[in-house]
């Protein structure tokens, strides 16, 4: 009984720390004029070689800022990845699954210049944009420049991406004390913490602030085309190490994982429990956690309504 008592105390002790998740701010500072140019560019296929896709093709606001496909439609043989959502990216500590971009400026340029994605050069981007009367006028007005550089283009897109936050989810409002969650949601959150999900999915984006191994207890299969840290460091232990994805809007950003291998939340939760904890959750536990995860869906970014 003594052991029982000690163990209970240890668990309770661990639970008694303050909330590790912060709500999103209702608004974020950004330059609305620049962001509106960025919005124009974001939806404009002018930025792809064959003028067939735009940023929004893979980061569709209607599909939770991603696309409901296992992999990005434009992939190469040596790199396949599920598309991370563009929502709330400003709060991620790195960009891409393996964090190879330190910020949005680095990130935004990569798909445009990637031959297997949009496939343009900086020069081509500048040529195309400077040919457009619409953009010339817009940039002149906001940036005061006669010649639009690649940097200007990226800057505008980044400014738009900064605006893409999804505030006022049920959970955020619960954190702010505005509403109460359902019993199931609350129990789901308790499980989320108790099971240790929170040790990786924490912070304002409930994830997106550290690199973690997928398959800690029970290893996950590894494929050479996975977008993991190994691609960058070359260290054996970095295989299947990814930036922890944000769980914000997770209910609408299916399929899940770097390889899009989980089609539903239930599946994703179960796989996580197995690979990261080595346990099999009961259906009841899964339902509760999924209920909690669904409460993380926020409002559509205000700038999209303009």
């Amino acid at each position: 009984m003594l052991i029982f008592f000690i163990l209970t105390t240890l668990v309770l002790f661990s639970l008694s720390f303050p909330d590790p998740i912060k709500p999103l701010p209702a608004e974020i500072k950004y330059d609305i004029k620049k962001a509106l140019i960025g919005k124009e560019l974001f939806f404009d296929p002018i930025l792809s070689k064959e003028r067939d896709i735009s940023c929004a093709t893979c980061h569709d606001p209607e599909q939770g800022g991603t696309v409901h496909l296992r992999f990005s439609p434009k992939v190469s043989e040596d790199l396949k990845a599920n598309v991370p959502t563009v929502f709330n990216v400003v709060f991620n500590f790195r960009q891409f699954w393996n964090g190879r971009a330190k910020d949005l400026y680095e990130q935004a340029a990569i798909p445009i210049l990637n031959p297997s994605e949009m496939g343009l050069t900086k020069e081509e981007v500048e040529r195309r944009i400077n040919k457009s009367d619409k953009y010339k006028k817009m940039f002149k007005e906001v940036y005061g420049v006669d010649y639009i550089t690649f940097k200007h283009v990226i800057d505008a897109i980044v400014e738009f991406e900064r605006a893409l936050i999804t505030p006022n989810s049920r959970f955020d409002r619960y954190l702010r004390g505005e509403i109460d969650l359902t019993e199931s949601e609350k129990e789901g959150y308790a499980l989320f913490k108790k099971l240790g999900c929170i040790t990786c999915h924490n912070g304002i984006n409930i994830g997106g602030n550290s690199f973690q191994k997928f398959g800690v207890v029970n290893p996950y299969k590894w494929e050479p085309y996975f977008p993991d840290r190994y691609k960058i460091t070359g260290r054996e232990e970095d295989k299947n190490v990814y930036k922890v994805p944000s769980l914000r809007n997770v209910a609408i950003t299916y399929p899940y994982f770097h390889d899009g291998s989980a089609g539903t939340l239930e599946e994703a939760v179960k796989k996580m429990a197995y690979h990261q904890l080595g346990i099999t959750l009961t259906d009841e536990e899964v339902t509760k956690i999924v209920d909690f995860l669904k409460s993380l869906t926020g409002e559509m970014p205000a700038i999209l309504k303009r």
Binding site: S14, L15, F17, P18, D19, P20, I21, K22, F91, F93, K193, G196, I198, T199, N202, G203, I204, N205, N209, S210
Partner: peptide
């Protein structure tokens, strides 16, 4: 030390 630590601050 803290189990439910939030990495944001560190970042």
């Amino acid at each position: 030390l803290i189990l439910y630590y939030n990495y944001d601050q560190l970042n």
